[in-house]
């Protein structure tokens, strides 16, 4: 049941995770919600930018790039 939660930006490229907790607040949180990042949403880590940050994720069929500042406030359960 209680699998370890990791921040989204630590999810290795090419693997999937399930959103469990979002600690962002205010506008940043609302923006994430608008992207469809709610509990149990499946997210795939797709691409790293040349500098390693930001990282692009597939969220509900769309490819969205997030900086590590934002991604570190999204906690996921890795799906193997």
């Amino acid at each position: 049941m209680s699998k370890k939660l990791i921040p989204l930006h630590e999810l290795p490229t090419g693997s999937f995770g399930k959103v469990k907790k979002i600690t962002a607040e205010g506008n940043s949180r609302r923006r994430m919600l608008d992207l469809g990042l709610i509990e149990d949403t499946t997210v795939e880590s797709l691409l790293k930018s040349p500098a390693g940050d930001p990282i692009a994720y597939e969220i509900r069929g769309a490819v969205i790039a997030l900086r590590s500042e934002e991604a570190s406030k999204i906690f996921i359960e890795s799906i193997s």
Binding site: A24, R31, A62, V63, I64, A65, L66, E69
Partner: peptide, 11 residues
């Protein structure tokens, strides 16, 4: 500080 950043990479 930098504000939040979300960027869509459309198909």
């Amino acid at each position: 500080l930098p504000s939040s950043f979300t960027l869509e990479l459309p198909p």
